[in-house]
Every structure is written in structure tokens, then in C-alpha cells.
Design a protein around this nucleic acid. Sequence first.
DNA 1: GACGAATTTGAGTCCATCCTCAAATAATAC
DNA 2: GTATTATTTGAGGATGGACTCAAATTCGTC
Lengths: 218, 218
Amino acid sequence: MDSNSSRDKRTSLQPMRAAGRQRVEELLEAASDLMAERGYEATTMAEIAASAGAKVGSLYRFFPNKEAVADALVQRHIAVLEDEYAALAKRATTLSPDALADVLIELLVTLHPRVKSLSALMEARTDRMEIRDRARGHAIAGIAAALRVCAPGLDEALAKDIAAVVLNVMKVLRSMLAKDAPTTSGAPDELRQMHRLYLTDRLQPFRRTPDGITDAEP
Amino acid sequence: MDSNSSRDKRTSLQPMRAAGRQRVEELLEAASDLMAERGYEATTMAEIAASAGAKVGSLYRFFPNKEAVADALVQRHIAVLEDEYAALAKRATTLSPDALADVLIELLVTLHPRVKSLSALMEARTDRMEIRDRARGHAIAGIAAALRVCAPGLDEALAKDIAAVVLNVMKVLRSMLAKDAPTTSGAPDELRQMHRLYLTDRLQPFRRTPDGITDAEP
DNA sequence: GACGAATTTGAGTCCATCCTCAAATAATAC
DNA sequence: GTATTATTTGAGGATGGACTCAAATTCGTC
């Protein structure tokens, strides 16, 4: 339908020079920090620009509106997650369900510096939810794939259901560890414990063994 | 410090007549519905009034500002939760850990009609977070109390940590069952399963028996 | 029904924030 | 150096939504 790949929302140019690309980086970095800190709504376009050492005009040169900034951030976060899940799927062959549980649940925490504003952006309510839905879909597919590497024979649909649970546990752990966390100190460990119990229970029947695959017994 | 109990934020009168009390009910009901639907920020004062068949002026007669509306809603939600947790603590003597796990996790779901906007309000970022923190505190204390009735001897601090986990699981289940839920259909059951496994594991050592209390063994 | 008090009204003020744009400046090509 | 193109600037325009208030209306009481 579209002759070129640009969004039909008004004008917004791709940066053509090194300086422009650099600016875009700075703007997105600033936006990510601010939105992670205050949330999507509470972050203003002027703040983003100022925090990147620029003026609003520059911001609007590269992004047609505020939502486009959020979308660009989500896109980048998706890319990071894709990479990490791919890497994890490779490692998963050598991991026991227990070990996989631990790696999975810490993933969002260790990845935090690279996807700082992800949770704030996933919570934000905007007109087009499509990108956010895709992000969630990618995350679940990635986790499900890792699970099935570790536990071959695990039903595809079931793997996605389990992945949805795992993703939510990851989110809760992240929120518990946030700096203004209003939770008791032992809670994160309890959460980890619950997650381990659950994944062990779910993956044990399909556990990969050195010489093959043990069959399930109900 | 204050001579009377009213907030120092401008004027706002208590309703003096039946009509006024009725209006306040309608306004809060409308506010709860709208905020549950669209979130705190996206709900405007004019919408709240209109949805209750009133004009903004009436709304501002009883509430000094938007935040006061949210606070009043949270207050009411807290009261509902207090009641429910108290009732649950009574029932808990007769419940096995398994049964308690099931009752607990469904609580926020069954209570939903009465605390519709609670999750939206807990997410909202406003100046004064104090009321929200108290709400969370009450919820955790209520859950912890129920746990300790079911499992006497459970350490108080540990009970709170477990309660924090339970509360978060409840929240996730609620969000999974929301009408625009973006999750796979089997996910809620998986979540319930995880919760059961966890609580069983945690409470089993302190399980109440017909003739007393079995001691813990690590 | 007359009086005062509670309630309702809705037009209007104020202000924050998104977004625009024409002109200035900097980088690149030749 | 000059022409061209990319980038920056920052003062507004436009909008929307929180909040105000004086006047109108309704309610309760005697």
C-alpha cells in the first residue's frame, strides 16, 4: 500500500547525517530515562528535548508526535529482547529446568538497563496499542521457545500459557526491585521460590536427559 | 494539628442532605466505572460529572480536586477489603492450605465489582502516594493474618513476604481476566496452579490438624 | 408561603502541554 | 566560495482539561 516505509502521520524525517543520528540516540536515551522515572504521560516533550540538550523543534524533526517516540522505544526494546531470547534458546539445551527458571526470572532484572522504560511504556494507554501487543507476543514466543528447548515434547499451546505466567512473574519481580519499591525485603526471594517450584513442576515430566528424553508420567 | 478532620485543600463540603449523599454516591460510582475503564489520568472531571447526570460544579462542591475523588475511592475500597479479610480470617480456621490458596487467589476476582477501579487507582501516579501505600499495607496485613490463622506458627515477617507475593499473583490474575485481556486462554489456570503449588509448599509445615499443630520439619 | 440553607448550574478563567513553522545556522558538495 | 541540504531554534498557536464562582434553584422548616 505505502510506497515508502514512513508513517503517514505528518512529517518526520530520518536523520541524514551523523549529527542527526547522534541526536536521535540522545533523544531516545533521554526519553527512556524520563519515562522510566515518571511514566509516559507525566513526561513532556519539552523535558525530553531539554534532557537531551536540545529544543522541542529538534525532537519534532525526527518524531512526528509523542506516541512515535514511545513506539520507537518499544521497537528498540523488542529488538533487545529478541536477541536475548535467541541467545537463551541456545543456552537452554544445557540447562536443567531449575537453572532455566532462575535464568528466566532474572532476565528482566539483568536486562533492565537496556530496556529501562519498557514497563512504563507497556502500561501507557495510547491510541494504537498494536506495537505493545506485538512486544508482548514476541516476549511470550521467546520464553515459550526457550521452555521447549529445555523440555522438548512440551505442548506448544501449553508452553505459551506457561510463558505468559513466567512473563508476569518477571514483571512483578522487576517492580519489587524498583528503587521506590513498597514491598518487604523478603518478598523478592519468595517470588523466586514460587517461580522455581512452578517451572520445576511443569517441566520435570519432559526433562531432557543425557541420552534422550524421559517420557511424561501424569 | 488540624482542628477539624477536613483536608486543607480549599473548600469541599460534606453533604448535609439525603440528596447530597445520594449525589456523592452517584459521583463516586461514575468515577469508579470510568477510571476502571480508562485509567485515572484519562478520566476527566467533566466526564465523571456527566456520567453521574450532574455538572462539574456539583462534583467540585463535594470534592476539592480530582485527587480527592481518587482518594475517596481508595478509602472505600480499603473498607471493603478490610471486611473481606476479616471474614476470611474467620473462615480460615476450617480451611486447608490448598483451599485457602484457591479462596485467596479468587478474592480479587470475585470482589471485582465492588472494587472496580482499585487497580487503576493503585497504578496512578499522583502527588500524595500515602493513601495508596496504606491500601497496600492493609491488603498485605489482611492476607498475612489469614495465612497465620491457617498456619499458626508461621513467622510474622515471613507471612508478610508471602502475602506480598499472593497479592501480586491476585493482581496478575485480575489483569489476565480483564475484558481486553491480551493473554492466552490457559494462562489464568496456569497462574492458579503456580499459586497453589507455592502456598501448599509454604504452609504445609505449619498445617493445622484436627488435634493440634504439626511441627515444622525443614 | 416565607425564610434560610443546601445544592445545582455552566459559562468562564487559567494554565500546562502538544505541536507548528519560518527564519537562522551548520555541514556538505562542487 | 557558493549552492544545497540538513539541522536547530524558540516564539507562538491550538487544545484540552482542572478548577472557580455568582446567580439560580430546590429543599426543609416554621
